[in-house]
Design a protein around this nucleic acid. Sequence first.
DNA 1: GCAAAAGTGTTAACACTACACCCATGG
DNA 2: CCATGGGTGTAGTGTTAACACTTTTGC
Lengths: 235, 235
Amino acid sequence: MLNQYTQQTKCLVALDSIIFGFDGESLKILLVKRGIEPDKDVWSLMGGWLQANENLDEAANRVLKELTGLDDIYLENLSVYGDPKRDPVERTVSVTYFALINVADYEQKISDSFQASWFSLHELPELLFDHGTMISHAIHRLRNKAAFHPVGFELLPDKFTLPQLQTLYEAIFDTKFDKRNFSRKINASGLISKLDEKQKGFSKKGAFYYTLNREKYKSADDTHFYFIPNLSTIV
Amino acid sequence: MLNQYTQQTKCLVALDSIIFGFDGESLKILLVKRGIEPDKDVWSLMGGWLQANENLDEAANRVLKELTGLDDIYLENLSVYGDPKRDPVERTVSVTYFALINVADYEQKISDSFQASWFSLHELPELLFDHGTMISHAIHRLRNKAAFHPVGFELLPDKFTLPQLQTLYEAIFDTKFDKRNFSRKINASGLISKLDEKQKGFSKKGAFYYTLNREKYKSADDTHFYFIPNLSTIV
DNA sequence: GCAAAAGTGTTAACACTACACCCATGG
DNA sequence: CCATGGGTGTAGTGTTAACACTTTTGC
């Protein structure tokens, strides 16, 4: 009987994305000032509403495109939040996604068009609704993901140096690594190739650039690549 | 402006639980025959609708209680499915949970009251909507979870033998372990205590019963317990 | 020439794998 | 007494973690 359906309460469905970026030094999250009441001008995640004809992934991608101009980026379903009081206006179920981008590539685009700003993970402002919880979960998931899958490269430019890569992993896991062990491990994975070009202007000696082996990377989800700094930080 | 809210489409929100059980031999999933059209009598996950005053966890627990009589069991949010066509009657977003129970403890209750039945993972019937996909994801998640957290014990009775525990882990990961290595690893975790009582009636020699160290177990989420049979099966 | 960052090897501890025999008991 | 499943130890191998000095070059 269709009564089974029509008697039920319905909810709004929101998509909220936790957008991680790396600027070469620390890991950041992109937030926007909410444009509507209540809680206008409170910092919040990039979000929007699910529309009638789209699935969740499509909706998350569309919202991200609308709000940031970013397209074709790493976006992965994270979780769902459905406390009846989480949005005071009306019952809303929020589906979260996490996204990984390279800050440098997109900085202009974002700043020009929207009231958005990057926040270091250690200096987050007061956040809308349960967005703080969402971010905590996303950080946890990012660590978990980065420990087993080579997603870190999504956050870097096409050409990067080993010290940059190490700094990124140190930011993700909020720890320090031994550079000898780090480079040995990364090289052993076969995921990166050394170019014969050196980075200029940062250090005196200059670090060699590396680039990602795309083929190896594509299949890396199914191979044994893993990078576990310390299990206790991720499980 | 509240227009921002009221213009949006709303969805039904369903909860569907993938209930894993272990009968001492193999890993099973509890399914029910759908009671309403369309697709009446097709096997499906235990499911129900989100109600106005409850959050997702509460709803999942309530639905499980209503359909199986099971209470206070391991239940964890898994994922969310929102394809616009996934339910042909009306747009429904489904939030999935996975549950772990000991088959023996509850078998009677379930069979008596509901048209439910256990299916081995290798012999699943045709399933409603996208429930097959949900189950695949759940198996993956169970493996991932079991590799790092001692959740396996949720599936066993309070007293269990090492061979039972090993059989369970072999079922979860669909592989075989060396019993010497297995027992060494489990014992090293400090999670279980040997009783001086032996299992009767199954083997001639009889295997010692063990019991879970509850204190250690509670804190195990934050300690280094992990049990990785083979990374490729879980990542 | 010196300051600053890049790059590179070795060792010791630990963890994992593989492997085979004796034990206890019910029938 | 024998068949069945329960229980135990060791050696070899591979992986990880800890550790310090030399190289390059811009200033």
